[in-house]
Design a protein around this nucleic acid. Sequence first.
DNA 1: AGAGATTGCTAACGGTGTTAACTTTCGGGA
DNA 2: TCCCGAAAGTTAACACCGTTAGCAATCTCT
Lengths: 242, 242
Amino acid sequence: MSGTAGTPTGRRHRVREEALAEILRTGRRLLVEDGPGAVTLRAIAREMGMTAPGLYRYYAGHRELVQALASSLYDELAAALAAARDRHPSAGPGRQLREAGRELRRWALAHPREFGLLFAKPVADADTAPGSVAHDSGWRFGGVVLDLMVQLWRDGTVVPPAGLDPVWTAQLEEVREHLSGEPVPLEVIYVFVACWARLYGTVAVEVFGHLDFALTDPGPLFEHTLDEILTALGDTDRLTER
Amino acid sequence: MSGTAGTPTGRRHRVREEALAEILRTGRRLLVEDGPGAVTLRAIAREMGMTAPGLYRYYAGHRELVQALASSLYDELAAALAAARDRHPSAGPGRQLREAGRELRRWALAHPREFGLLFAKPVADADTAPGSVAHDSGWRFGGVVLDLMVQLWRDGTVVPPAGLDPVWTAQLEEVREHLSGEPVPLEVIYVFVACWARLYGTVAVEVFGHLDFALTDPGPLFEHTLDEILTALGDTDRLTER
DNA sequence: AGAGATTGCTAACGGTGTTAACTTTCGGGA
DNA sequence: TCCCGAAAGTTAACACCGTTAGCAATCTCT
């Protein structure tokens, strides 16, 4: 036996990784240039100078390929948010969260097709399952923002809501585990989720064009939303952040 | 010459309307049962006992058929919102707006595939053009909510934001025209748009499953959001609305 | 050098949107 | 009443899609 199920053998593994990357790169280019309907096994293969069945050596099918593309886009977005956060290392978590929020909007507006794939795919297919790729990838992405919220809570004063519905405690416990082991109160995690939903939703509504009827540039509205989110998170030094 | 370009001739017109309706009905059933990828010319025709090219007598192509389906769904949603509003005729606009908001969420959760078509189609295709079907249909839908906001403004006390970016005035003027001729200040219209974006975005984030990682039932979170929206709109008698 | 795994190919199946050309049906004016 | 023109729906065909089966070539490791 030579390479049966052993660890990847140097070169083989490298060229395969490159092929996987080129497939995703090509698929993304087709997505950006011609829309989601154009990201096709045959088109990708054609662009790469091969035939469609060859792609089955890399992905189990069209569905898996698109999921892998979405997963890589989640990673890119997460990296962009982290980079925006680290662009101001000496700033407080409030400022960093603001920058990450801005970057989320910036990235989404600069890559609407990609954002559409991430945001809208779960309902098109039905892969919101707790163990799916979209689930974990989404965590890598939202985790950047949630971690900043945790830091903000540690420094400042998050105002917890009056009464927390006991139905939530179980699920929120699970969220707390993902939060770098901090003993954040569940009421505070609830505020995090609410703010996350507001941030994500605001960006989505704009990217999907549902504000075009009224606004040519929703930028200031987004800044306002960011202000309110940071206020809800108890950010104190808001005056120096602009 | 008989019926050349004249007004529709009674019976002919009626059976054609019924055919158009059956096409949309069938397309929607396929959408709900098997997802957006299943709403296909050939499948619709098959279900109706005819062949695909026959559908070209009714719609110029697959794209136009789906757009017509989306338009009819917008109308249904608008009617649902209006019905929820009229279910409490003697209540104030605050209560009515709350009911309409709840109905928006209820409808979207009950019809996720349909909501996904409405919310996500514009970015999949590129038909956010100001004269497109999605534009006008969206107005019929959002207009119900905006009208309630106007009533709320007339009765109560909407707090306008500090300084309004002058870049917006032009677009907001256009919005004001659609608002049943009321002389609403532009600053107030800005608040309307902000609240609309928040309401729509909150529902979208939930329907697309982006809160599943944390919450099994985001209902209370939505009620909280509704509270904040009504507060921003200056709703006074919130205590009696529950 | 040979064995085995990996890679990519061609051929083929059923499904899709769309067009062209044809047949059938049906309503209303003479 | 008849008949003609418009409308509705058909079949055939084309190019595209995902997917599978089977086969040839290539590369790696022993």
